[in-house]
Design a binder for these strands. Structure first.
Length: 477
RNA sequence: GGGGGAUUGAGCUAACCUGGUAUGCUGCCAGCUUUGGGAGCUGGUUGUCAGAGUUCAAAUCUCUGAUCCCCCA
């Protein structure tokens, strides 16, 4: 493959096809088949996430995919937000169902009626449960593989606490988890925004969402964590008996990292003109050994390669003995994003060495065989670190500021986020957000988490009234 | 929501206007040769989106339907 990443849209379609990341031939709009090349990475991402959540006190569970209509409709804001996108099951076998069943678009209304039964007293709290599952949303916007599909793969964690403070702490913990995994381990840069009131999760008190950037400068929402307050507990009767003997409503949060979407940003962030580039930890094949064989040396080289493979069996190591030329194999495994490649032929064997090549930099170097394991470990770690650093520096170059409508119009063309003074992130600010959307095709992402600065003396870029807060604008997926 | 494109083997494609044995490349399988940056030869391999109509004869003409992909907001 040789598509310049500058033309991101074309690059994205091409890499999906060339590297077999998903098969679009399943003839149902918005539903894609995810073959092993992508599924292996997604499973690793799932495993990393699940381990992290469990380490922080979450336990796994599985809830039904179908939700009775009356459950889904219990919380009015929630239902208003999701119903336009729900797939309904209305028939079973030969009969019409008496009550429609929703294919879960998210699982609050499947889980919380059970929570009401499970939680009785303070000793049941906090209750932190997650499930890894698929959800379905009949998206009306244009679908795009991994980024916006009508069926997608995610984890949803739903936590319940006795107090508001604990719930707020959980929101913070979710943000930390996101930083530890998405940024530090996957190398994906992002910013946490507190969404404006008009753009929060349906039914939530507040929504905090991690927004990353795609190579074309448009933003993509990754995990979000929601402070649900008591909105759902009051509807679903999630209560505990306090020490004073009174029944009290619980405080809830939920957190939803969408693995399929995170995967999109993973390969889009790190990939290059030659194809995929994976962090060492996530690569389905971490080390590929390419034997260089002549007819008379084949047996000897083969033996050596098997030896190396066994030596590196603690990693996902493979050897390519296929009947292709070395050049073909180099290109193939580079396209597939294998972080490290070992080349070995008689020339090297005689020196007691092999050649190690890095996917990210293309550097090749000779490594003595007795130092191989150590070198592989070092180079693997260094590669992941380099990917993260490269992504960070690219990302930080896309942070802009604007104090007026005209400046915003200019800055947004560069791609990325633009920090602007804004009248309000409460409901009344929506008019201004709509105006900017109309004029510049930008979306207001919210205030940056932790940004305490006040826009003293500045005016809202949309309405010109005194600004109360700095918000960020970006074009979005 | 607006626009565009398309449906011929696993993928890309020719033939369609002017109806008559469906073309080539890639892939895949087998064999031989080959291997330090996309190898070569020989042989093999599967197909006209669905339904109806016109006709001696339909990938091609007519009608009806279905589906997908892409771009922009």
């Amino acid at each position: 493959m040789d598509i310049p990443k500058e033309n991101f849209s074309e690059w994205y379609n091409e890499i999906i096809k060339e590297a077999h990341l998903c098969d679009l031939r399943y003839n149902l709009k918005g539903f894609v088949v995810i073959p092993p090349n992508a599924a292996q990475v997604m499973k690793t991402m799932y495993r990393i996430y699940e381990e992290a959540l469990e380490k922080k006190g979450h336990k796994p569970a599985y809830f039904p995919a179908l939700i009775p209509e009356r459950n889904l409709k219990a919380e009015s804001e929630h239902v208003a937000g999701f119903v336009p996108e729900v797939f309904w099951v209305t028939e079973a076998g030969l009969n019409k169902l008496e009550e429609k069943l929703a294919m879960r678009p998210t699982s609050e209304t499947a889980m919380y009626p059970m929570y009401a039964l499970w939680i009785n007293g303070k000793s049941d709290l906090p209750m932190k449960i997650y499930q890894s599952c698929q959800v379905w949303r009949h998206e009306t916007k244009a679908t795009k593989p991994f980024i916006r599909t009508r069926e997608f793969y995610w984890i949803e964690a739903h936590d319940v606490f006795a107090t508001e403070e604990e719930a707020l702490m959980q929101v913070k913990e979710d943000m930390e988890t996101t930083e530890e995994i998405l940024h530090q381990r996957f190398g994906i840069p992002f910013i946490f925004f507190k969404r404006p009131q008009w753009d929060k999760f349906a039914g939530a008190v507040d929504t905090y969402a991690a927004d990353t950037l795609m190579p074309d400068g448009k933003t993509l929402q990754l995990p979000s964590t929601h402070m649900l307050g008591q909105n759902f507990s009051k509807v679903f009767n999630v209560k505990y008996m306090d020490e004073d003997g009174a029944q009290k409503f619980c405080w809830q949060t939920c957190y939803g990292p969408a693995i399929s979407r995170i995967y999109a940003s993973l390969f889009s962030t790190h990939g290059d003109n030659k194809g995929l580039v994976y962090p060492f930890e996530l690569a389905p094949v971490q080390v590929i050994i390419i034997p260089i064989m002549k007819k008379d040396t084949e047996a000897e080289v083969r033996k050596k390669v098997e030896e190396l493979k066994a030596k590196l069996s603690h990693l996902r190591t493979e050897a390519d003995f296929s009947n292709n030329t070395p050049g073909f194999k180099f290109n193939k495994w580079e396209l597939l994003g294998v972080p490290l490649r070992i080349e070995i032929g008689m020339r090297d064997i005689q020196k007691g060495a092999c050649v190690v090549a890095r996917r990210d930099t293309g550097e090749k170097k000779e490594v003595k065989l007795e130092k191989l394991e150590e070198e592989i470990r070092k180079e693997g770690a260094s590669l992941s670190e380099n990917l993260c650093k490269k992504a960070d520096s690219w990302f930080s170059g896309l942070m802009h500021e604007a104090d007026s409508d005209a400046e915003l119009g200019k800055a947004i063309e560069k791609g990325g986020f633009v920090r602007i003074p804004f009248c309000s992130d409460q409901k009344e600010g929506e008019v201004c957000a709509d105006r900017l959307k109309e004029k510049h095709a930008v979306n207001i992402r919210g205030s940056r988490y932790g940004d305490k600065e006040k826009p003293k003396g500045k005016k809202c870029v949309a309405c010109g009234k005194p600004a109360s807060i700095f918000l960020y604008a970006a074009r979005q997926y």
